[in-house]
Design a binder for these strands. Structure first.
Lengths: 117, 117
DNA sequence: GCTTTGCATAACCATTGGGTTATGTTTTAA
DNA sequence: TTAAAACATAACCCAATGGTTATGCAAAGC
C-alpha cells in the first residue's frame, strides 16, 4: 500500500524526464510496465527502479495481472503536489503584482537591477 | 540571468523541505538571505547552496542591496511547474473517474486488488 | 581605521540516484 | 514439458546532493 506520498518524494520523483514521460504516457490510460518502457533506451532494471520511485512517492498504483503489472496514476498524490504550488502561487503572484503596480505608478520600469548613483 | 528553469531542475529544487520552507516564507514578501535562514539549524554555506539550487532552477530572483541580497520568487517558473501537473491532472482524473463510473455501474467496489478464484 | 555583518567559494565527506550486468521467479506460449 | 516473456532483486559503478569547516571579501557600524 503506497503512502499518500510526502512532498519530498513526490517532487523528487517528478524531477526526472523519464518518469515524467511515463506519467504523461499514463494520461492516455493505464499501461503495462513494458509498454511504459517503450521508447526509452535503458535496461529493464532501470525501468523497474523508476517504477519503484514513482510508487514510493505514491504517484502510481500497481495491479498484478498474471505476469504483467498494470500501472495507473494516483490522482490524489498528484493533486497534493499541484495544490502545494497552487496555494503559494496565489501569494507569490500577489506580491509580484504589487511590485508591478508600484513600478507602474512611479514610471521606473526596467530598473530591477539598476543601482542609482 | 536565471534561465526559465527546466522542469528537472525545478522539481528537484522543490524536492527539499528546507527550500520549500524558504519559498513559503517568500510568500509573505521578499526577504534577505539571512532572514530566510532563520529557524534552520544549518551552516550559512548550506543556506547559500540552497539558494543556488533555487536560483539555478529559476525559482527565485536575487537583488544585491549593499551587502545584503534581497530574494523574491519568480512566479513564471513556479507557474510552469504547476501547469505541467495541472495539464495532465485533467486526463489522469478523467480516466480515474471513468473507472469509478465503471465500478459504480457494476457494483464491484473494493475489488481493486482482489483476485477472483 | 578596525571590526563585524552578510554573504560567496573551495575543499572535503557521506549518502543518494540513475545507470549497468547478472540472476531469479512466475506466468504464458509453443 | 520446455522455452520465452514480464517482471523483480542484488551487486556494483560513478556522478550528484546535502552537509560540513575554513577562508575570502565587500559593505556597514563603531
Amino acid at each position: 500500500m503506497q503512502s499518500p506520498g510526502n512532498l519530498d518524494d513526490v517532487f523528487a520523483a517528478l524531477a526526472d524526464s523519464t518518469r515524467r514521460g511515463m506519467l504523461e504516457r499514463l494520461s492516455r490510460g493505464p499501461a503495462n510496465i513494458s509498454t511504459l518502457a517503450q521508447g526509452y533506451e535503458m535496461s529493464q532494471p532501470a525501468i523497474s527502479k523508476h517504477m519503484r520511485v514513482l510508487e514510493k512517492a505514491g504517484l502510481i498504483h500497481r495491479e498484478k495481472h498474471g505476469r504483467e503489472v498494470r500501472v495507473s496514476v494516483n490522482t490524489q498524490t498528484v493533486e497534493q503536489a499541484r495544490d502545494w504550488i497552487a496555494y503559494y502561487t496565489r501569494f507569490w503572484k500577489q506580491q509580484f503584482d504589487a511590485v508591478e503596480h508600484y513600478l507602474d505608478h512611479h514610471h521606473v520600469k526596467n530598473s530591477s537591477t539598476e543601482e542609482q548613483p
